[in-house]
Design a protein around this nucleic acid. Structure first.
Lengths: 253, 253
DNA sequence: CATAACCGTTTTCAATTCGAAAACAGCGAT
DNA sequence: ATCGCTGTTTTCGAATTGAAAACGGTTATG
């Protein structure tokens, strides 16, 4: 899967590098960018002015930074995902019913991308936010997605992103991963037992209205809370049926 | 306030036009873009391939569309706003306490940009979403912001965006607007009584940790519900004190 | 089933445009 | 008042873009 343009537009690439760098540095002055990128200050100035004219960049004093235009754009893109449109109200309900943190995510470029979060009364505060991208192998949402992708796709994703260790519970070899995915398919849901974050567990179910997997929904909670309540409240059942409802809404929309 | 680059990078502008168009059309094929933009298909192909290499565009069959990379970027930009960082937990609490829809917004380019929404138990479903941009003159959040901007800034914003009618309650002349803003300053909060949307009312308070106004927080509810509960629950007081808490958190962070 | 129409991709090369370098201007510090 | 630092502007040679045409793959049509 090579995505090299065979006739790349170099000028556009320079602008994109500039955008990346502004993000990385949370804004910067021109002479700083001059050191970071291989461009002269005259060129940087031209690019930044152009991006500014079009509303992508804001200048405060001599500091340039990305504007909220990207947030606006991102909102538009997100609103086209049926899993977001139909999943949002269901995620709200699941959060209200369980009191937990509910996540809605899809797959892009072999990563999970968080589309929405709903917070119940006792929702944990996590490092994950809308737009964040995580690897798929060590989170419940990720494994719920991987389980319903073709094997060769999973192989390619593991090739690209690896199986890096995050906690002592992280799955780090392919064989174990494929066994796990098989058991996800048998059970219809995936779990994350402190595989990415110490003390945090998740339960996820796939959202699959047709042949293709569109994403997954999960609940996250501290290990103690999930352990206590998982069976009493049939949390697994709630997550699975929410995922099913979303899938049905999408299928017959 | 002219933001014309005096040496614009035309190639970058072409890519940006392409991005805008993809957003507008929610994705498109090359020959459609050829009709919409003044570019040949060869050029469009080069630009799209370049944007794709860098992850901004996705190709599905022969259809090109914007990827979630912009959502990711937008998330990073948003997380740099202190009003978001500190306002998010407070907005969650206000939503839980009042059961309503809570909005957090800032100003950019003379518009309001929604940074966050928190949903209480009885929150209305609205057309506003994170990232959306609205005019300032006919929403509570907007007037709460305008009231604490310098007069000449307000004038400039009205010059740029006008005071278009949305409902019969919309303020449409400058004099009334400035009177309203004066009363917002006296009272320390702003209201929207069906000025943008029939049947919807809002209460907003400014977030101003220092000399500059950073944004505002509001609650939205159907006219009937707000009317019933506004006085009983001292909703105005709750919104104002939440705004104050956020401002203090930011000031002494 | 053959053929045509259509459309995305590639190639070539002339015209455009970009940006390196240098000069300028504005601000802050000394 | 002067110097130094940086952002902006200008100029013009060099790099790159993209118009046009050819190609090739896919879908529609007779």
């Amino acid at each position: 899967m090579t995505t090299e343009a065979n006739h790349p537009v170099r000028t556009t690439e320079k602008s994109l590098h500039l955008i990346e760098k502004l993000r990385e540095l949370d804004g910067a002055r021109i002479h700083v960018l001059e050191d970071e990128l291989e461009m002269t200050k005259g060129a940087i100035h031209n690019h930044l002015s152009t991006l500014r004219t079009h509303g992508y960049v804001i200048k405060e004093g001599n500091e340039y930074r990305l504007s909220l235009k990207v947030l606006t754009l991102g909102g538009y893109v997100r609103s086209n995902y049926s899993i977001y449109q139909f999943g949002r109200p269901k995620a709200n309900k699941l959060a209200a019913d369980t009191g937990m943190l509910v996540n809605l995510a899809t797959e892009e470029h072999g990563q999970s991308v968080y589309l929405y979060q709903a917070r119940g009364e006792y929702a944990v505060n996590l490092d994950t936010q809308v737009g964040h991208r995580l690897r798929l192998h060590n989170i419940a949402i990720g494994k719920a997605i991987l389980a319903y992708l073709p094997d060769e796709r999973v192989e390619a994703i593991v090739d690209e992103w690896g199986l890096p260790t995050e906690t002592e519970n992280t799955i780090t070899d392919r064989e174990t991963l494929f066994e796990e995915l098989e058991s996800v398919r048998e059970q219809g849901f995936a779990t994350d037992l402190e595989e990415r974050t110490e003390g945090l567990c998740c339960i996820a179910a796939p959202i699959q209205p047709g042949d293709d997997i569109l994403g997954a929904i999960s609940i996250s909670a501290p290990t103690s809370r999930l352990g206590d309540r998982a069976f009493d409240d049939d949390l697994v059942g709630q997550v699975k049926s929410t995922a099913n409802e979303i899938a049905l809404d999408i299928k017959y929309m």
